[in-house]
């Protein structure tokens, strides 16, 4: 099962980026954390608008089953909802710790949209 983690850098030891649409990177990883791929989110990060939607499309194309981030804006939330991808709160953790906590069922679901342009 693949998961997308918004992150501040391209490794498992970087912290979870609390922003989803304008995340620095997405680490796409299996829940075992063995294989992973980092995608630079520069294009969406610098988009004038619609960053949340574009990032939702990006992770959806990666075939992930869940997203770990800090906040989801209303448009990102509805876009991920349409793609059937739930969001989980991994704010403050490293990517590695967030993946482990997700696998253990310890991450809270982000079940409502945060404020638009949070932070």
């Amino acid at each position: 099962m693949k998961v997308a983690v918004s992150s501040l850098g391209p490794t498992l030891d970087d912290r979870v980026d609390e922003h989803f649409g304008r995340a620095m990177w997405f680490v796409i990883a299996g829940t075992d954390g063995a294989d992973f791929e980092a995608i630079d989110n520069a294009e969406n990060r610098n988009a004038l608008q619609g960053a949340g939607i574009a990032s939702a499309e990006l992770v959806s194309e990666q075939g992930v089953a869940a997203v770990i981030t800090g906040h989801l804006g209303p448009k990102a939330f509805s876009a991920l909802g349409a793609a059937g991808i739930p969001g989980y709160d991994g704010a403050g953790m490293t990517v590695r710790a967030a993946l482990a906590a997700f696998t253990a069922g310890d991450l809270g679901a982000l079940d409502e949209a945060g404020e638009a342009h949070s932070g």
Binding site: I53, E57, A82, A83
Partner: peptide
């Protein structure tokens, strides 16, 4: 040009 049309979850979505 405005990123208003997206493909998500196997369907086209308009924002």
């Amino acid at each position: 040009a405005y990123g208003a049309v997206r493909i998500l979850g196997g369907q086209v979505m308009v924002f």
